[in-house]
Design a protein around this nucleic acid. Structure first.
Length: 632
DNA sequence: CGCATGTGGATTTTT
DNA sequence: TCCACATGCG
């Protein structure tokens, strides 16, 4: 008895009262609203331990669902840190929605009923598209908007045959092409080839679970706020009569509404199952100033309780344009680095991936070590699937059965690493000191991470919130900024462009920045480091910039150490300089890899027109073209 | 074929 | 708001 009590104390001892309440909860459905930094994963793992030791629920009777492999690994890792290594057969219910569905279909559910065999494979999105193109070629389907095939096909598949009849003949269907026929044929073809997409893992899993229910004792879900309709339906089918459901999430961090259903999954669960709702208050990992600012963007639940202890700084800064911003950041980062700050403790967030390009460009030239945090261009899903032993279409599944540790080697298929990343890595190796580099990422990618210094750039109207964001999306944009802000531990800097040079982006600060009371922030107007150059010519720019000693501006480093040397510059002066520079446009000769030598005839903020003589006059987007400036 | 007109989609990312 | 693509007319 004493042993059991000691064990309970060991599991619950580290928790605060609210966390403890969540772990002890035994309602049939419980939704925990976990604020940022409230110890969500700690609670989740404690819950699993508590169920195992105190409630005698074996791990194989639990289904533990996450959205990403990373999250699944973290939970398993923390559990195993306490439990020692657990045999995989006990953990078949642990993993992402998709991997759990996969295992059920492989091992328990009668897939034959749906026209599949146990040897089915998973069809990756690109492969499905390839299959569709093959069908178009083979059957001679006429499909309009070839460039939009992925989206149109997805819509057609989602709506299915019902969607077809409901849309047929109406305005939506006036294109009169074979997209519906293609969708049907593709469905057949996938069954014929014994393969299913990620989505179909859940769809088919749901269908079969409804007919052949399994009854786990507990279902535990991490980050519920991210689930879409299909995942909730799968969950509903997975849940037996006596299954208890424990879901943890944060409605303030719904930033993926655009790819799932627009309804909030937390609210859906509460309505559908009459769930008990609990709230975990925030721990003060961020400085109170930063929390105060974050509170302006919080939409659900209690106001953030702000402790009295000071700490954490928030600054709002004006930047000239994206290039000037990049050089400013390079400077700031160098100063922080000189102060001994580890580069991986510094992060820059932006709204669009394209905004990262100019940063990588400038950082490379300036010798700043960086790392772009993206998942997009790499076959991460594939890598993980292979590690989990999930059979992928077109690759030899080493036998009819489930995962074995013989993972075949197809690493040669991995996509090429973008060159800027190679640069970053090379620099990383050269500089023996820092192991990684400054983190550059979209606000979306920042979710779940934490840094000492955070710079959020381009907080202009038209970027944050994004210009095309409608009324519904607007709230999500606000949550996106909330997520970004709450990643900062000690220092947060928000900046906007006065000359964004991006279509649809208004000069000047976003309405969101005006939502922050002045008393919470310091405002800084910094004379752009870049004001003296025609920003179209990056190469030229660098040369001039290197020669120019940098302005004595207030830096993030000095701000934190208390030394303040703000230099506010006279605006009239700045405007004059700008005028002068815009007018001087020297004749420039450039070289293009394909068209050879040419003369620049016209140039705007993001476009450039070059006369290549016999090859003709070509227009390029500056972001994509590589032009070498030729000296005369 | 060239041109005018209309329409729908744009950005964020995981499995 | 702007851009790419489809369609229809001359």
């Amino acid at each position: 008895m004493g042993g059991l009590e000691r064990l309970e104390e060991e599991i619950l001892g580290q928790l605060n009262p609210r966390q403890r309440e969540a772990v002890l909860d035994c309602s049939s459905t419980c939704v925990v609203n976990a604020n940022v930094g409230s110890g969500k994963t700690t609670v989740l793992v404690a819950k699993l331990l508590y169920l195992y030791y105190m409630k005698n629920v074996s791990y194989s009777q639990m289904i533990v669902l996450t959205f990403t492999h990373k999250a699944a690994e973290e939970i398993r890792g923390r559990l195993e840190a306490r439990e020692g290594r657990l045999p995989p057969e006990q953990l078949t219910g642990f993993g992402t929605f998709h991997s759990v569905a996969y295992r059920l279909l492989k091992q328990i559910l009668p897939v034959e009923e749906l026209g599949y065999t146990r040897e089915f494979t998973v069809l990756l999105p690109e492969q499905e598209l390839e299959l569709a193109r093959e069908l178009i070629r083979r059957e001679g389907y006429k499909i309009k908007y070839p460039a939009r095939l992925p989206k149109r096909l997805e819509a057609a598949m989602r709506l299915g045959s019902q969607g077809r009849s409901s849309v047929e003949g109406k305005r939506l269907d006036k294109l009169q092409d074979d997209i519906w026929v293609l969708a049907g044929a593709l469905e057949q073809e996938k069954k014929h080839r014994n393969t299913m997409t990620f989505r179909e893992l859940l769809v088919h899993g749901e269908t079969l679970l409804r007919k052949y229910p399994i009854t786990p004792a507990w279902i535990v879900i991490d980050e519920v706020q991210d689930s879409d309709g299909q995942q909730l339906a799968f969950l509903d089918a997975l849940r037996g009569r006596d299954t208890r459901l424990f879901a943890v999430g944060d409605p303030n961090q719904i930033i993926y509404g655009w790819r799932g259903s627009s309804i909030n999954a937390c609210f859906t669960l509460v309505h559908r199952y009459g769930a008990r709702e609990l709230t975990l208050p925030m721990n003060y990992r961020s400085g109170s100033r930063i929390l105060e600012v974050a509170g302006r963007f919080k939409q659900y639940g209690d106001k953030l309780a702000v402790g009295r202890e000071s700490g954490g700084q928030v600054r709002i800064r004006q930047a000239y344009d994206p290039l000037g911003e990049a050089y400013y950041l390079a400077e700031q980062i160098r100063l922080l680095q000189e102060k001994g700050v580890a580069l991986e403790q510094i992060a820059v967030f932006y709204r669009l991936q394209a905004q990262g390009d100019i940063l990588t460009d400038v950082f490379s030239r300036e010798g700043i070590c960086y790392q772009v945090v993206t998942r997009r261009e790499r076959p991460v899903g594939e890598t993980y699937l292979e590690e989990e032993g999930i059979a992928i279409y077109g690759k030899e599944s080493g036998g009819s059965h489930v995962p074995s540790e013989t993972a075949p080697e197809y690493n040669d298929r991995s996509l090429p690493i973008p060159s800027h990343e190679v640069d970053g890595m090379r620099r990383r190796q050269e500089e023996s000191g820092s192991s990684s580099g400054v983190r550059l990422m979209t606000l979306h990618a920042s979710k779940g991470l934490e840094f000492t210094y955070v710079f959020i750039i381009g907080v202009n109207y038209g970027l944050i919130p994004l210009h095309s964001a409608g009324f519904d999306e607007e709230e999500e944009e606000r949550r996106l900024l909330f997520v970004g802000i709450t990643r900062a531990r000690d220092y947060l800097e928000l900046s906007y462009y006065t000359q964004p040079g991006i279509p649809g982006v208004t000069p000047g600060e976003s309405r969101y920045l005006q939502m922050i009371p002045e008393r919470m922030v310091e405002r800084v107007d910094i004379t752009p480091v870049t004001e003296t150059v025609n920003f179209s010519d990056k190469a030229l720019y660098v040369e001039e910039n290197v020669k120019t000693p940098s302005n004595p501006v207030m830096t993030a480093a000095s701000a934190l150490s208390g030394k303040r040397k703000i230099s506010r510059h006279d605006r009239g002066n700045t405007a004059e300089k700008e005028d002068v520079d815009v007018e001087q446009t020297p004749i420039r000769r450039v070289r293009h890899a394909k068209y050879g030598l040419g003369t620049v005839t016209e140039e705007s903020a993001d476009g450039i027109k070059v006369d290549f003589g016999e090859m003709g006059v070509k227009s390029f987007l500056k972001d994509f073209v590589i032009l070498e400036t030729v000296a005369e």
